[in-house]
Nucleic acid binder design. Structure first.
Lengths: 189, 189
DNA sequence: CCGCGTAGTGCCAGTGACTGACACTACGAA
DNA sequence: TTCGTAGTGTCAGTCACTGGCACTACGCGG
């Protein structure tokens, strides 16, 4: 039953998220995921390159949104200020999809193999951000450095925000970037 | 032939590095590695948890050396200055093992699955550095932020050094950290 | 209404990473 | 010599993942 193709994909993602949550990633087989989604194991691998990838479908959208935000930022802004806009945008998206992204993050955090994949995705993401900065005229080297350190800082801010949701993500972002400024300013004596 | 056990391990690492280099990671089977090392496939998995891990045996030593360097740094230094000492130490080790680490890095760079594992190792490494900073009294949050951004900066410096070996790694480290200072200082207008 | 191409799928056989269980052998200590 | 232990070989088995081929729903031009 060929359906739309897109629907099978969504059902597979949903089934995988549930099963990984219920039994854990390691004790879940791709055949089980396919069965719950009402398709064959073979079809699973037609939609996702491997057992981990099924949880990382939205990553590309997030990356594109951030890259667009970097491209759309007004001229004359410093690299970190440009990135900050992209990070705020990512925060919006994260919050909007919270009901889906929360169990997802829980499963990833509990599974080394999935954390590994997440790090790889972040590497792609920072490379895309660096490339977007270069298109704005930021120097070859500086763009990569800004993207990676900026992303690490953003990641810390998000972590702080998840621990203390009483304050907005934007506040945490400002505070964490201020921390970074403090770290660099005091060093090199 | 039970030998020392440590020798089989080394032979497996050597055989894996050679085969990954000759045919590529994907077209090499663990059985082939074991055969070239003169042992059974089962023995391969007794020494290494998986097909990738065989290339990452030395990572733990590097991490321990850096952690020791952080712990041994004199009191009163800023977090980034402490890390800088650890990075210089890592540079020494890297350079000393260059004949082994060069083909290794080439294989890793050519194989997505191995790059993924490398990122995971770096995550462990930065977490260890953060913990070492905390033991020096650096704040919970700040330690993690410093370790991650510091490591990213170090990584860029090493990259720059590999591209331009005419200057010492230390120079590249200083320069890259200066770049980071510039990035943070100019932002937040 | 009918062929017809295409995209999505099912089915099946196969490879290769990895595991558990058990037996065997070298080697050092009692 | 005996015995414990660490390292290994052997074998059977699970599961992620792939290639090939046939089938079926759907859209489109006739």
């Amino acid at each position: 039953m060929p359906r739309s193709g897109e629907e099978a994909r969504r059902r597979l993602q949903q089934a995988a998220l549930e099963l990984y949550g219920e039994r854990g990633f390691d004790r879940t087989t791709t055949a089980e995921i396919a069965a719950r989604a009402g398709v064959t194991e073979r079809t699973f691998f037609r939609h996702f390159s491997d057992k981990r990838e099924v949880l990382f479908g939205g990553e590309a959208d997030l990356r594109d949104a951030m890259v667009r935000e970097v491209a759309a930022a007004p001229d004359g802004l410093e690299p970190f200020d440009v990135l900050l806009r992209a990070f705020r945008k990512a925060g919006e998206i994260l919050e909007r999809n919270r009901p889906f992204s929360e169990p997802r993050l829980a499963v990833i955090a509990a599974t080394p193999a999935l954390r590994e994949r997440e790090l790889a995705k972040h590497a792609y993401l920072t490379e895309a951000l660096a490339e977007a900065l270069r298109r704005r005229g930021v120097g070859e080297r500086l763009a990569g450095l800004a993207a990676q350190t900026g992303w690490a800082t953003c990641h810390h801010a998000v972590q702080a925000w998840l621990d203390d949701s009483s304050r907005a993500l934007d506040e945490h972002l400002d505070e964490t970037f201020a921390d970074l400024r403090g770290l660099t300013a005091e060093a090199g004596a």
